[in-house]
């Protein structure tokens, strides 16, 4: 599309029915490495349902998801993450009775190779890997400005910090594509501003693609290179922020006739 790299995510004709209700239909999308892509639409348009299909929380009824060149039709939630898709949730889902540090460490489980016997016997391999995991976790917490809170219970963090921790935990799984479900929900303009910088710096630092759902138009228009608009489960429009802002169909969907 805008460059000659192969897309990291290529979705074609994706759809899902709940009983007789078609929630999303004929959804197609290509996301390229290093791209920040926005997914917007009025309430109930099916944005989170798309995320749930991309992560296989819901099994799509139709269509294909090619991720990183691989067909994902046989993959489940765990396999999708191992393949390289990480996400945050609209209603924050942290491990609230675990420490902030352990939340991030849990995200790194996939790269730990020691077995349970080594853990129970505290073998040198266990100690070495635990030390590495702790160091990389602290590094991640630092990027998200949470290093001071490492020892706190995740459930006791202030709201904004919980959102950042969810992103840190997702990044701990070393993804190629990060899905952010309303990252700025409940944040004030200043926090939103900081979040935008953070999203950009994550993209630059790790070179990953980011797909985000957001209602905050200042954020969406500010950081997304391309935007897909969803309405009633169908794609209404796709383009750059300025194209979207001037699309009469989008204006109609948001403001009514």
């Amino acid at each position: 599309m805008e460059n000659n790299k192969a897309p990291v995510l290529e979705v074609t004709g994706l759809g899902i029915d709940f009983g007789g209700l078609t929630a999303v239909d004929n959804f197609s999308l290509s996301v390229y490495p290093g791209e920040i892509r926005g997914l917007i639409g009025p309430n109930g348009a099916g944005k989170t349902t798309v995320f749930n299909m991309l992560t296989k929380v819901y099994e799509p009824s139709r269509g294909s998801i090619i991720f990183d060149g691989k067909d994902t039709s046989k993959m489940d939630v765990v396999a999708m993450n191992r393949a390289g898709i990480a996400r945050t949730f609209q209603n924050i889902r942290l491990f609230s009775k675990m420490t902030v540090l352990d939340n991030v460490k849990a995200g790194m489980n996939g790269r730990i190779t020691y077995g349970n016997v080594a853990a129970i016997l505290r073998l040198p391999g266990f100690r070495k890997q635990e030390k590495e995991i702790k160091e990389s976790s602290m590094e991640l917490l630092k990027i998200f400005g949470l290093e001071e809170s490492a020892g706190l219970m995740a459930g006791n963090l202030p709201y904004g910090a919980q959102r950042r921790l969810e992103m840190a935990r997702a990044m701990a799984t070393d993804p190629k594509l990060l899905l952010l479900d309303e990252p700025a929900a409940g944040m004030n303009p200043q926090e939103t501003e900081e979040l935008m910088d953070m999203v950009r710096s994550i993209r630059d630092r790790f070179g990953i693609a980011i797909l985000l759902i957001e209602h905050d138009m200042q954020l969406v228009m500010g950081i997304c290179e391309r935007i897909t608009v969803l309405n009633y489960g169908m794609i209404l429009s796709e383009g750059t922020p300025s194209e979207i802002q001037n699309d009469p169909q989008v204006i109609k969907a948001y403001l009514g006739d």
Binding site: V57, V78, F95, M98, A106, A170
Partner: peptide
């Protein structure tokens, strides 16, 4: 056995699965 298991990869995974099943599977547990 229990203390060492709790303070390891598996212990964190067990607690993560307890605190939030969906989030745990979303990070590959």
């Amino acid at each position: 056995v229990v203390y060492n298991l709790m303070d390891s990869k598996s212990g964190r995974a067990i607690m993560a699965a307890r605190d939030n099943r969906i989030a745990a599977s979303s990070i590959g547990i």
